[in-house]
Design a protein around this nucleic acid. Structure first.
Length: 116
DNA sequence: TTGTTGACTCCCG
DNA sequence: CCGGGAGCCAACA
């Protein structure tokens, strides 16, 4: 039987919404997977934000490096090469990292002011 | 169809 | 603060 008839948050156009949301994050600022997911409609689909970014076509202009996890660290899940590139890009934008490789979310977390 | 996986997050200890 | 375990929802085999 039906558990809930609520519409799914992750629709076929989910990836494009993720990209559109991430593009709103300005240089020098960061956001989290959970924040992007919340903006899209559900904080529970944070993993799918990561999935969408993993499926990001090469050449697509999306500041994917500004998306980090809720702890303020870079999620690499084994891909240290991409993680290094992400950190390098962020540092190029002026994002500072702690000795432990952590970003100060309290100061740099984007607040999505354009949501109204 | 079921079971596994994942660029996550929260809760404990 | 950090590591481990559980929960989470779709994609994928």
């Amino acid at each position: 039987m039906s558990r809930d008839h609520e519409p799914r948050v992750v629709t076929p156009g989910f990836r494009d919404r993720v990209y559109a949301a991430v593009r709103r994050v300005p240089a020098g600022r960061v956001t989290t997977y959970g924040d992007v997911a919340a903006v899209l409609g559900s904080p529970r689909v944070a993993r799918h934000v990561g999935w969408a970014l993993a499926a990001l076509p090469a050449g697509t202009e999306v500041p994917w490096h500004r998306v980090i996890n809720a702890r303020g660290t870079i999620s690499h899940r084994g891909d240290l090469v991409r993680a290094a590139e992400q950190r390098d890009r962020l540092e190029s934008e002026g994002v500072d990292f702690d000795p432990s490789g952590r970003v100060d979310l309290r100061a740099l977390r984007w607040d999505w002011p354009d949501l109204g």
